[in-house]
Design a protein around this nucleic acid. Structure first.
Lengths: 144, 144
DNA sequence: TGGTTAGATGATAATAACTTTCATTTTCAA
DNA sequence: TTGAAAATGAAAGTTATTATCATCTAACCA
C-alpha cells in the first residue's frame, strides 16, 4: 500500500520537475501498472485499463509507459517474444529472471555474488557498469 | 580456416538431415556470416552479401539466418536497438556481453564462476538451465 | 540424360509492434 | 477566467519481421 503511494509520489514529482501536467488517464494507467506483478505488455495493460475506462487509447498507454521508463519507475524488457514488456521497479533491489522455454513462466532470483563478479569482470575490461540484464532459459519444475 | 570449413560441414549435414537442398545463395550467405565477427543484423548482412552477388534478396538472407539459428550455428540476440542481431556460435564456449551505453561498443567476456552460480540459483528454484543471456550496460574505457 | 517434383529464390505483400501526427480537449499559472 | 502549453485519442506512418506466390533449380529416378 505504501509502496503504491510512494511510486505515485515519485511520478508526481517527476512530472512536476519536467513541467508536465497531471491527468486522470495517466494516473490511472500508472496506478494500474504499479499494481501489476507480471511483466506486462502494452496490449495487456491497455486491456486492463479499458475495463474501467474504455475510452483510453493505446497511444496514451504507450506514452505513459515511456514516461515511467524514463523516470525509472518501470523497466522495459525484451524476453524474445517480439514484444516489449514492462516490469515494476523492484522494492527490494535488482533481480534477474529465469524463463521456462516451454511454458514461458518467468521466475525471479537475485544473487549478490553474481553481481559482484560481474563488476569485477567489467572492471578488467575497463568498463563501468551501470546496469545489467541476466536471463536464464530452461525448464521450470512443471516442464522438466 | 578450419573453423569455417567445420561450420559449413555442420550446415551441410543439417540440410541433409532435414531433406533440404543446397544452393549457391545459401552457401554464400552462410559463408559470409561465418566470416563475420560482429553482431550483424539482417540488413547489414544483406548489404555485405550484395557486394558480390547483388541479386540476392532480403528474404533469402532472412531464411538463411533462420536456418542457421535453428541449427545452432547462429545465435539471435536483441540488444535493445529494435533489431535482431546474429552472432556466430563461439568456438571457445559461451561468452557474455558488455555494452557501452554511449558509443554502443560491445565487448565480450566469460566467467566460469558466474555460470556456476547461475546454475545453483536456478536449481534452488527447481529450474534446469539450458541457455542464458548476460548483458552488462555501462561505459567503455573511452566513454567513461 | 531428361523429366519430375519438392524445395529455394526474389519480389512483393502482409503483419505486428512501435512511434508520430493532428485536431481537439484539458490543465494550470497568471 | 483565460490562454498557452501539454495531453488525449484516433488514425496514419514507420520499421522490422514474416508470409505469399510465381518462377526457378537441385536432386532423384526411369
Amino acid at each position: 500500500m505504501t509502496e503504491i503511494v510512494n511510486k505515485m509520489d515519485v511520478l508526481k514529482s517527476y512530472i512536476e520537475t519536467k513541467g508536465l501536467k497531471s491527468t486522470a488517464q495517466r494516473d490511472y494507467i500508472a496506478d494500474t501498472f504499479f499494481k501489476t506483478n507480471t511483466h506486462i505488455s502494452l496490449d495487456e495493460l491497455l486491456k486492463k485499463v479499458k475495463r474501467k475506462t474504455p475510452n483510453i487509447g493505446y497511444a496514451t498507454v504507450y506514452r505513459t509507459m515511456k514516461l515511467l521508463t524514463e523516470s525509472g519507475l518501470a523497466i522495459a524488457r525484451q524476453f524474445g517474444d517480439g514484444q516489449t514488456r514492462y516490469e515494476n521497479l523492484p522494492e527490494d533491489g535488482h533481480h534477474d529472471h529465469i524463463i521456462c522455454i516451454k511454458c514461458s513462466r518467468i521466475a525471479e532470483f537475485s544473487n549478490q555474488k553474481i553481481e559482484q563478479l560481474q563488476m569485477e569482470a567489467a572492471k578488467k575490461l575497463g568498463f563501468t557498469v551501470v546496469n545489467h540484464k541476466l536471463e536464464l532459459y530452461g525448464y521450470c519444475p512443471d516442464c522438466v
